[in-house]
């Protein structure tokens, strides 16, 4: 098998994969955090809306959501023409971000619940106000508690990026399929698997490092 030809092509496909991963990861984390805050406010209406959002995002296939954003949104009545995303990468990234934010929101909510109530009490008797308590006491602990679950999601995400093939982006999987079709040699799939494995492994190492750095 002509690896010297395949590897540069696949590496190029990896660029889209990695670009999508970074875009989604960087934008869905803060969005997830905002959702967590909205989900944990005392306003019942806001809680309900966020709860419904999370239910839909987690309860339907990501592939379907990608199709919906890319193919479906333009057909929405009245507002459809404002929601049309012609760029495939952007459309795919939007679907991924909306989906992953829902998962991150739930992870952060779990982290929030794990912060001991004694921490809030200590902050209160020391005269910290709500903002100081949230940003200096609660959030750092929430992030630390959430880190292993976030790490898990990151590894799922790097593999999920392969779904983007479905709307015709030339990511690692698409490049590999093209090679297989052209050469009728399915061993290219094994090489692609190795690529995914290496990326997952790098992520594992990064998060292990972060967990160690922020351990307490």
């Amino acid at each position: 098998m002509p690896l010297n030809e395949w590897i540069p092509q696949m590496a190029e496909g990896c660029i889209i994969t990695i670009k999508l991963f970074i875009t989604v990861f960087v934008l869905s984390l803060p969005l997830g955090l905002i959702l967590t805050f909205l989900y944990t406010t005392k306003n019942k209406a806001i809680n309900g809306i966020v709860g419904l959002y999370i239910l839909i995002m987690r309860g339907t296939p990501l592939l379907l959501q990608i199709f919906f954003v890319y193919f479906g949104l333009p057909y929405a009545p009245v507002i459809g023409k404002y929601l049309t995303i012609n760029d495939r990468f952007t459309a795919g990234a939007v679907a991924f971000i909306l989906n992953y934010a829902a998962y991150f929101a739930e992870i952060f909510r779990g982290g929030l619940l794990s912060v001991d109530k004694g921490q809030y009490e200590a902050a209160k008797v020391l005269g910290l106000n709500d903002m100081q308590t949230r940003f200096k006491i609660v959030l750092p602990q929430m992030f630390r508690i959430s880190l292993p679950a976030v790490s898990n999601e990151a590894i799922v995400l790097i593999k999920d990026t392969a779904l983007i093939t479905a709307i015709g982006l030339t990511d690692l999987l698409k490049v590999t399929k093209t090679i297989v079709n052209r050469t009728t040699n399915i061993s290219a799939f094994a090489v692609a698997a190795l690529f995914y494995l290496v990326m997952s492994y790098v992520l594992t190492l990064v998060f292990k490092f972060l967990e160690k750095k922020f351990s307490f």
Binding site: D116, G118, Q119, E121, A122, V125, I137, P140, Q141, R144, F214, F216
Partner: peptide, 11 residues
């Protein structure tokens, strides 16, 4: 105030 379980900030 000093608590039974200390409630130091672990981070």
């Amino acid at each position: 105030m000093v608590f039974q379980h200390f409630n130091l900030f672990p981070h």
